[in-house]
Amino acid sequence: MERMDEEMPFLLRYENVAWYENGRVRILDRRVYPAQVRFVECASYREVAQAVRDMVTQSAGPYTAVGMGMALAAHECRDRSGEEQAAFLEQASRELASARPTAANRYAAVTESCRRAALEALRTGCDPAEAAVRTTVESLNRRYGKMQAVGDRLAELIPDGGTILTQCFGETIIGTVMRAARRQNKTFRVFCAETRPYLQGARLTASCFAEMGFDTTVVTDNMAAYVMEREGVDLFTSAADTIAMDGHIANKIGTLQLAILAKYFHIPYFVTGIPDRDKPAGRDIVIELRDPEQVLCTGGARHTAPGVKAVYPAFDVTPPHLISGVVTDRGVFTPYTLERYFDGGETAFY
Rank of each mutant, 00 (worst) to 15 (best):
C208W: 00
R134D: 03
S98A: 13
K186N: 05
E194P: 02
N185K: 14
C192H: 02
A108H: 05
A180H: 07
G170K: 01
F191P: 00
T172W: 03
T124V: 04
A108T: 01
P101T: 13
T124E: 09
G161S: 08
N105C: 03
T195R: 02
A103T: 12
D152Y: 13
T136Q: 02
G175V: 05
L199P: 00
L140V: 13
R203M: 00
E95A: 10
I158T: 14
R203C: 01
Q148I: 12
E138N: 15
A97C: 07
R183Y: 04
R153Q: 14
R179K: 15
A202P: 01
R189V: 01
N141T: 10
V190R: 02
L140F: 15
R100L: 11
S139W: 04
R183E: 15
A131S: 09
A104D: 03
A97Y: 07
S113P: 01
T135N: 09
P197F: 05
A118K: 06
I173G: 10
I158F: 14
L154I: 07
C208G: 00
G201W: 00
C114H: 11
L122C: 14
R142K: 12
V110P: 03
R143E: 15
T166A: 04
P159I: 15
T136Y: 07
A193M: 04
